[in-house]
Structures are given as C-alpha cells and as structure tokens.
Computed example of a mutant assay.
Amino acid sequence: MKDSHVADDVTRAAVELFARQGYANTSVQQIVEAAGVTKGAMYHYFESKDDLLFGIYERLLTLQKAHLDAIIERGGSVDEVLRAVCIDVLETSIDYMEEGAVFFRSLNMLSAPRHQEVTRRRRAYHDEFAELISRGQAEGIYRADIPLAMLVAHFFSDVHYLSHWYSPEGPEDKTLVAEQITDLFLSSIRRMDADT
C-alpha cells in the first residue's frame, strides 16, 4: 500500500465503522485493523479519533467551499449563481452522504475546539449563501417578507434531511434530485411579482 493512500483508507474504514456501530462504540484499534494499517501510520495523519471525525466532515466542508468560490467567481445573474450553488451543495452532500450522516450523528462528541471550528466554517459558508439571497432581494427577485436566516435554514434543512430518505441505489438520479429540490427552494423564495 502506498503511503499517500493511508489517510484515505483510515477515513473510509472509520466512516464504515462509525456508520455501523457508532462513533462512541468504535475503537482506534478497530479502525486501524479495518484499514489494514498500524496505529503509528494512522497517528501520522490523525492526532486522535476526534481529529478523524473532524477530518471526515472537514473534507466535505473544504470541497463545498472551493466549489462555492468557483461558482461565484464564474459570475452570472444572482439567480443563476444561487441555483448552481444549491445544486452543487445537494450533489456533493449526496456524494458524501454517509460521511455527513456519521458526522451529524456524532457532532456532539467532538471536542469543544473542533466543534467551534466546524460551527465557524459552516457559518462562513451560510453567510456567503445568505449574501446571494440578499443580493436577489435587493434586485427584487426574492421575497423579503421572511427573515433571511429562515430562508437559509429552509434550504439547508432539506440538505441535512437527505440521508433520511435518499438512496443512491434508488430510482432517483442525484442530479435530478438536486435540480428538483433546488427548483422547489427557488420557487418558494421568489417574489410572485418578480420577472422570471
């Protein structure tokens, strides 16, 4: 096994074990045995089990933030940009659904500094997302009669609920699901008298 694959193998093993038996019930020994590595190899990449749990979600946060920045950088109308961002969040959340589900079930077990870091980074992402809606409100596209925070929460509640019903083995294609949820969200925040 190449050294560069160790972190990925450990992460994959941890996700599978955390999903099957829970974070608290999974030992570092079980993780390294499932990954086929030594504890020393694991500790080269992860300081602790807490660090590993944080790393699982950190990868998704980093990916989604990079995509958000790239989509905004490309430009376009606020409606086009927000639609592209929504679809990306949904597709990447489906791609990393097991990781997301494990993380949200175990979030309360993170150490206080890690919990604060996740909260900070998620808030930063949500703030950029909210700024897009705010721009649309200023342009008269999106409704302003509902607090901005509620509009943001409305979308992300759908994202976080995905793991409760979506199955990659099911008949729904991830892109179609992402587009349909996005269209429902955008329809719900669009002003009835806005030009489409």
Rank of each mutant, 00 (worst) to 15 (best):
L90G: 08
E128Y: 02
G140E: 14
H154A: 11
G100S: 02
I133C: 12
D173K: 15
T175N: 06
T26E: 04
A144L: 09
A194V: 03
K65N: 04
L82Y: 00
I72G: 00
D173E: 15
I56L: 01
S93K: 04
L68A: 01
V81L: 04
D95A: 10
S163K: 07
V81K: 11
A144D: 13
G136V: 06
I72E: 01
Y23K: 11
P168S: 15
R191T: 11
D95G: 03
A84T: 05
T119F: 06
L53A: 10
Y43T: 00
L184P: 00
F54Q: 04
L107T: 05
E172R: 14
V15L: 04
A112Q: 03
A7D: 01
G140Y: 03
Q137I: 14
S157I: 15
D183G: 00
F46L: 04
T11Q: 05
L107A: 15
D3N: 09
F129H: 07
I87M: 09
H160Q: 14
W165I: 13
R20Q: 09
D3C: 14
V177Q: 14
L53I: 11
V102G: 04
R20P: 08
H115F: 09
R143T: 10
R123P: 01
E80K: 07
P168E: 14
R191V: 12
E131T: 08
I146H: 08
H67D: 02
S48E: 15
T62N: 03
D158Q: 14
L17W: 03
L53M: 04
A194R: 00
W165P: 12
F156D: 07
A34L: 14
Y43D: 01
Q21H: 04
I56E: 01
R12T: 07
A66T: 00
S77N: 09
Y23P: 06
V89D: 00
